[in-house]
């Protein structure tokens, strides 16, 4: 069932979306390692998003967010996600 600390994912997702656009580097034209610095920001940020999404799934917040029981906070295996845990 839903737990209060899962609510932290709402601002986390908001920040992840908002700063995928490198707003702090607006107008900056520095080139780093062959590419504009703001492209590196974006590449790094999307990597970060992937890690954050993975921990969202693994923490069990994925199920709890929909009001379901989490499969023991392990992120689930094939056996635990087909049917059993969701009923």
């Amino acid at each position: 069932m839903r737990v209060r600390r899962d609510l932290v994912w709402i601002p986390v997702f908001a920040v992840l979306v908002a700063f995928s656009v490198p707003w702090p580097l607006w107008g900056v034209d520095r080139v780093v390692a062959g590419l504009p610095a703001w492209i590196w920001w974006h590449v790094g940020w999307l990597g970060l998003c992937s890690i954050a999404f993975r921990s969202f799934v693994r923490s069990g917040a994925w199920e709890r967010g929909m009001g379901l029981d989490a499969p023991g906070g392990t992120g689930g295996t094939e056996a635990s996600t087909r049917g059993g845990d969701r009923r």
Partner: peptide, 12 residues
């Protein structure tokens, strides 16, 4: 355009 598409497709 990379930023626009990356943000919308990859994250949002």
């Amino acid at each position: 355009w990379l930023i626009v598409m990356g943000t919308l497709d990859g994250v949002l």
